[in-house]
Amino acid sequence: MKPVDFDYVAPPVLEEAVAVLASAGEDGRVLAGGQSLIPLLNLRLVRPRLLVDLRRLTGLAGVRAAGDGVAIGAMTRQADAETAPLVRERAPLLAAALAHVGHPAIRFRGTVGGSLAHADPLAEVPAAALALDATLTLTGPDGVRRVAAEDFFQGFLATAAAPGEILTEIEIPACAGRGWAFVEFSRRHGDFALAGAAVVLALQDGRLGPASRIVVLGSADRCHRARAAEARLHGEPPTASVLDAAAAVADAGLEPASDVHGSAEYRRHLVRTMTARALGLAAARLAAP
């Protein structure tokens, strides 16, 4: 179980990394923590000619305040983001989601940016980013651009990053006072989820406002905003019956496939169940901030 032969560079500056990556075109791949890429390499499911390792780009690692929100460098290890006080304080949903990613040994190596860029439909970090309305910064040969999480995830392992573009930072806007929860169900602790829900509840004059979001994972080719469910929240008070009504349609528009871990029907049910649990928790946090 050995990878195909490839070459490797670890440029010391971002511009060089971008240039090398751009010149390699389709044959080049970014290497971050390697916790998704290297299993695929070992299984020969991915066959690059060149890996561009970001590990020397120390500027890409770290957490900083961005206004009242928080910005996290793409190369920040998942474990470091999870325990960073700024993240816990300003994006507790993300910290909670990170705690579900694999096992400590995976999170010590895996990066926040790697998880976003990999865009696994079952991954927690993308779901949290979407629920938190994060903005992602991409640096490429044509310069820097910012993309909303909403537009970043485009399908199974597919993102808006063009070949040659490197994800450099993720910024999460302030969300103080909001209710939040991340809930998932997996076969074993640390596994990718069968289904999960990342929920943010925002009150406006005692009613749930448009910043309230429900993101579900496990039944689509990417993390998915449950818009029908969100619609049931907007303008309503956060009562049990409102939350239940929202959870009941959390699977609307999803067309999950059946696989070895369960039928489509089961997955839809799990999506609704996880959403209901997350909404309950988030509402409790709203009530008792």
């Binding site: 490797y8 670890a10 290497l31 390697g34 916790q35 290297i38 299993p39 070992n42 890996l51 390792d53 590990r55 474990a79 400590p104 040994a105 995976i106 010590f108 190596r109």
Partner: peptide, 18 residues
């Protein structure tokens, strides 16, 4: 599992060059 700079890491998911 080895300790890489003091923290557990999968040696099978780490390239030697990394």
């Amino acid at each position: 599992t080895v300790l890489l700079d003091g923290r557990p890491a999968r040696a099978c998911l780490t390239l030697a060059v990394q």
